[in-house]
Design a protein around this nucleic acid. Structure first.
Lengths: 387, 387
DNA sequence: GATAATTCGTTCGCCGTAGGAAGGAAGTGT
DNA sequence: ACACTTCCTTCCTACGGCGAACGAATTATC
């Protein structure tokens, strides 16, 4: 947010307020899906007289579709308007080690088109050709692009915030924004997952949540007051570095906690408990194993205890109220989650609910949708004077 | 924030936009203190024509005071306007075990009047008579009341968020608001300190910070993106409960970490190192002692190591970028702070600056001022459509 | 020292928008 | 069929933002 020259535009210029009204209506419609003009006056507070031309415009632009008359107890039936999710498209680009996957989704998070491209040449070029190509006719409806950089879960080169920042700072994000002309957000995938679960998953009913993603590393995405919080250096959620046990040691960009309790660390142990090929889902394998094997059960207890201390730590610092288990942690079965919950409740200073994330792979996509849609509205936040 | 019936007022009604402009100007003036109308056009983006009547109003209301002409290189000299801090007063009420202290401050945080009252009868009555009484003529300028409930630092009955919530929920805050007719914020004192340091202390230049307050308990106040974050249950910053060492055990509402590393725990140890009366400032005493006594030096090392792990834990979860030492932790001398900084830098996943808080006792007051002033502007946040 | 140049602030007036009021539209109840 | 209710639209007015012209107060220049 390098305040370049801060174009000193009036806080309440005409276009501004018009834009605000538009967004009020659109966001109300997006939530309610099918509604009448009368409901819009209630929801937005705008007068019917103001709404008439506004709605007309929105219908013309395809945001709203006029449907037949709705039910009415008495009087003229309300002419129903349906929100058209296809009116707003977003692109979600996921950077992976050797390829990028690119999806176009409507504002429901329904995938309209997707493609995977091998990583050759310039990333920016790749994105800037793939996205318009995929969007096709829908390109004018594109509202934003969200780029998920491999964060914690990669375990590879691009790992800590500073290096993600390298991608985030100007190079990719700003270049793509300039070439496509829409807002672009670059963030690590765990943050996007957290945003996704908040927008469309297991966190729609709360304003705060923490998504704990266990993979080769361990990372968390933090939503506070409805917004993803990245911290000052973008390193919020680097919970793999928590110093929860003096005995544990991290190394080479691997935090002390995740060195011992990440999916890969667990996988090794599972192999030693049940020799054979490294299982694809070591945590699930461990849960299964624990049913019959005492040593596995004991180790599972250890894992749960460790994870619970991690969760409690987060609860102490930010009190998210709800913790979502993602990645390998989502492989726990109900009883294991219950036990984890019990451990957390016993030690956390405030009620903290532990449950599994529900979106799985689609979390990043939904997060991207949510980012891109709110990025469109973000221009407005300039409106409020700084306290 | 019980959304009562959501008064469906238009997002961009005329009065609203007028109010926004007013606040834009006021907030610009508050920051710059002395400025001309020309500077206001630059800062707010409003046209000179719009400003003329607005400034006239503000002068009439006492927000701005016309001063003589300012310097000018060429052309007509700018007529300077000075922001009048007395135009906005706030009350800061601090609840203590057996009394309440009440201060009226202007928006600079300068105390205009103060009084301490023994806690007799109904708290709400007490506050609602003391505040108007203290404010006197200035009552119409009262913009808000901030009530600091003894949080972590009390070590007594009112300790965890739920119990503070008891005070916070309806009883006190809402009653006072209704009787005085101004916004009221109730929060624990550590949060207020964090807000104060952010607004007027060692954190004015950053958007994120964590204030670590060591007293009988250990608590933290968290500012992220310029706002105090309380978490879902108001228990954010309960870092005394961090499970950083399996050996430590909490009890009776005392967290495991603070049981061992709080000011009172340190005081005991200091007494055992240098028999005598319990020192008033045990940490300072320890620092002094460590200069000459090897055992004290070793123990100081332990304390610093423990605190550093606490700070690192916070850095992992929220990455505040800056940590302010408050309460007993602010008694460390420069070399001790430097060593703490080194320990933190070695283990934190992102750069984290450790320094002492600067406001001391006045932090709560400044926090109250900042709360009350932003509460006045808070009505505006309704303006933006939810994403 | 007069005149030009420059910068500030204000007044005027146009335009666009918000929203009140009234009226038409399209149903339900009696 | 008639009143009644509710919804939506059109007309109209009032008001606020801001462009433009103007007056004010100083410095630079000849």
């Amino acid at each position: 947010m390098t305040d370049v020259v801060t174009p000193p535009t009036s806080p309440v210029s005409r276009e501004r307020s018009k834009e605000i009204k538009r967004l009020s209506v659109i966001s109300a419609a997006r939530q309610v899906r099918v509604l009448s003009r009368a409901e819009l006056t209630e929801l937005t507070g705008l007068s019917p007289a103001t709404l008439t031309p506004l709605v007309r415009d929105l219908i013309a632009e395809g945001y709203l579709i006029e449907r037949g008359p709705g039910a009415s107890r008495a009087g003229r039936p309300r002419a129903m308007l349906e929100f058209n999710p296809r009116a707003e498209l977003v692109a979600a680009v996921s950077l992976e080690p050797s390829r990028i996957s690119c999806e176009i989704a409507d504002s429901d998070g329904a995938v309209v088109a997707h493609r995977t491209v091998r990583l050759t040449g310039d990333i920016v070029d790749l994105i800037c050709t793939a996205v318009p190509d995929l969007a096709g006719d829908g390109l004018p409806a594109l509202r934003g692009v969200a780029i998920a950089a491999p964060g914690v879960s990669s375990g590879g080169a691009v790992r800590l915030a500073p290096s993600v920042g390298l991608v985030e700072g100007r190079p990719i994000g700003e270049s793509v924004r300039q070439r496509l002309g829409v807002p672009v957000v670059v963030d690590n995938d765990v943050n996007l997952m957290a945003a996704g679960e908040h927008a469309a998953g297991a966190g729609t009913d709360v304003a705060d949540l923490l998504l704990l993603h266990v993979a080769d590393g361990i990372g968390a995405g933090l939503v506070l007051d409805g917004q993803v919080r990245r911290g000052s250096g973008g390193a919020a959620g680097e919970v793999g570095f928590l110093p929860l046990d003096p005995a544990d040691q991290g190394h080479d960009g691997i935090g002390p906690f995740e060195a011992r309790w990440s999916e890969s660390a667990i996988a090794e142990k599972v192999v030693s408990l049940a020799p054979g090929r490294r299982p694809g889902s070591p945590v699930r394998a461990l849960v299964d194993l624990a049913a019959a094997d005492d040593r596995a059960a004991a180790y599972l207890d250890e894992v749960l205890a460790a994870w619970s201390r991690l969760i409690v730590s987060c609860a102490c610092v930010v009190d998210p109220g709800r913790v979502l288990l993602s990645g390998a942690a989502a492989e726990l079965d109900d009883t294991a989650v219950d036990r984890l919950q019990a451990l957390v409740s016993a030690a956390a200073p405030s009620p903290t609910e532990v449950r599994r994330a529900v979106l799985g792979d689609r979390a990043v996509l939904h997060g991207a949708v949510s980012y891109a849609l709110s990025a469109a509205a973000a221009g407005l936040s300039t409106l409020l004077p700084a306290p």
